[in-house]
Each structure stands twice: as structure tokens, then as C-alpha cells.
Design a protein around this nucleic acid. Structure first.
Lengths: 158, 158
DNA sequence: GTCGTTGCAAAGCGTTTGCAACTAT
DNA sequence: ATAGTTGCAAACGCTTTGCAACGAC
């Protein structure tokens, strides 16, 4: 569906009368090679270090562009926005607000959730655009073990 | 469960050896009287205007404090963080990324969703801490009406 | 040659912090 | 009197912008 191959990206750019520059190429490489996701600021630092002639503002402009083109997408975390390849969306991030551990669901895992929202509220949710916080299994268990009462209420966000 | 009455807040503060100052009182009033939710920056502007002797930093410090105390809570939106009375949590915000309309689910509406996550992944989700984006019913319908193909893929986030 | 793109430097914005003065208790 | 709280001003980190120079096409 989306493109991750530089050639396809170039083609996509050309379609819109846009150009492929060395800077863009470098940013694309860096952004796509990041293991999971990366914040704009972090990417800017990295690029400026590895590609001396490439500026922070170019990074921001390029990320926004690639986001529009559908090459990249971004997700909102507690710590801010992070970019990732568009095809890697489909991951829903469950983050424990107690232990900070993080668990990601595949699209098939998420389908029932989306189904519920669509059926009951006519809303086609994109659960990948914001992370979901809560309390993970092990933290739930240790809390249960810890003491009897207090089983009510959602997790605080320390 | 939580407190919204200034008296109860004062009591809560005292328990921790904290004090109730005129500034705090003003901020509490302003924060609690906001119809839905309000961003720290907006609240700071408002306060500084209405309560001349009250500073931006005090607003931020007070919001953080009230958040810890459980009087207020915050939610992450596309536009940033917004604070609201803690009891008003339970609202899950579904925002359409096409038309920007917003629909909020009551806690009972959300229960099945949480149930699913808990059963299948042992994760007790707090769906109120981040908004959920997607495409609302009317936008889905107008898209369906608009043309035959293209029924695939989640909503873009223009 | 055209027009998209870049670098730079500066500004913008929201948020945080150090510290001396202040004040609720 | 003690210790929490405030205001100020400065710093901070991230992001955006204006504009002249540059370079992909």
C-alpha cells in the first residue's frame, strides 16, 4: 500500500511536482531505519550529527511532508509525538503507567475493539494515533497481592 | 469519590501539610468552572488577566499539584494536554480527524472495550487519558456516498 | 531558467526553574 | 517562627518562519 522504497518515494514526490534532494534522502533513510519510532527532535539531532549539511528545519519540514504523502505516520505518546513508517501503523501501543512497560497489539488483536466502536457508535477508530495507557497485567497482579481493598478506580498517571 | 468542593480540597491539602492560598483558590475556581477541559497555557492566560497578582508558574505548579491530589486530571489531545475535574474523567473522547467533530462516551459505553482489553491482554486500560481519533459516522457515510472504491484504510490525520 | 528546497538565524510558544520575598498556619 | 508558596525573570526544549542563496528538474 504505502511505499518504503526510496524509488517509490521519489515517484510519489514527482507526481506532486516535488523534488528528491540529498537531504530528503538522508532523512528518509534515517527515519525509515529507526527500529520503532523516533521523535522529530531526536531525528533532528541525529541527522545534524551524521549529515553535517542538513538542518533541523529541514527535518521538520520533511517529516511533515512525508506524513502528508503517507510515507510516514506519527503517534502521540505521553512524551510527545513519534514518527514511524506508515506501514508499521496497525500497532496499538499499550503503556503501563505504573512500570512504563509497553505492549503492542497487532491489527488483528485490535479488530474486535474497532468493531465495537464501529457497531455501537458508528465511529471508525484509529487506535494507532494515540497510545493507550493503563495498568499492565503484572502490575495489576502485584497490586492485587499487595493488599485486599482498593481494587477500584483506574490507574493514576504519576 | 473525588472532591470538587473547595472545602474538601482544603481538607485534602491540609492532610498533606499543604496550604490554601488565594492564588490556589482562584486557580481551582477557574479550572473547575471551565465547561469541559482547558489547557494549562489557556488557563494561565485567563488567570493572569482576571487575577492580576497571579503568575503563570503558579498556574503550572498548581495544576500539577491538583493532578497529583486527584482533584484534576489531564487528557492528551491532538492539540496538547487539557485539564478537567477528576470526576469528569470516564469520558472517552472520540474525535473525527476529518470534520473535527467530537463525541464523548460515558464510562458505561466504554466498559465493553475495557473488558476486551482486560480479558485478552490482561491490560486495564484508561481510555480517558488519550483521545481516540478516527472517522465519525457522518464522514464515513459521506465518503461511502462519494464514490465506490477506496473503502479501505484508516483515516489520515491531515 | 524555473520553482521547489535549503540553511541560517531569529522568533514563537509552552513550560520549567532558581531564588529571594512573602504568608498561611 | 516555620515551612510551604509565590513572583519574577531567565532559561529551556521543541518547533516554526522569513528570506536570500541554492540546486533539482
Amino acid at each position: 500500500m504505502s511505499q518504503q522504497d526510496p524509488e517509490q518515494i521519489v515517484a510519489e514526490l514527482r507526481l506532486r511536482g516535488l523534488r528528491m534532494t540529498p537531504q530528503r534522502r538522508a532523512i528518509v533513510v534515517e527515519a525509515l531505519s529507526a527500529p520503532g519510532h523516533i521523535s522529530p527532535a531526536a531525528l533532528a539531532r541525529t541527522i545534524e550529527e551524521r549529515v553535517p549539511g542538513c538542518n533541523t528545519s529541514t527535518v521538520y519540514r520533511t517529516l511533515a511532508l512525508l506524513d502528508e504523502l503517507g510515507v510516514l505516520a506519527h503517534t502521540h505518546f505521553e512524551s510527545g509525538v513519534e514518527y514511524h513508517r506508515a506501514e508499521e501503523a496497525g500497532h496499538v501501543h499499550l503503556t503501563c503507567s505504573r512500570c512504563e512497560s509497553s505492549l503492542s497489539l497487532s491489527s488483528s488483536d485490535v479488530e474486535p475493539l474497532q468493531e465495537l466502536l464501529r457497531e455501537h457508535h458508528g465511529f471508525q477508530a484509529d487506535l494507532t494515533h494515540f497510545e493507550i495507557t493503563g495498568v499492565c497485567r503484572s502490575c495489576l497482579e502485584s497490586r492485587a497481592t499487595a493488599g485486599p481493598g482498593k481494587s477500584e478506580g483506574p490507574a493514576p498517571h504519576a
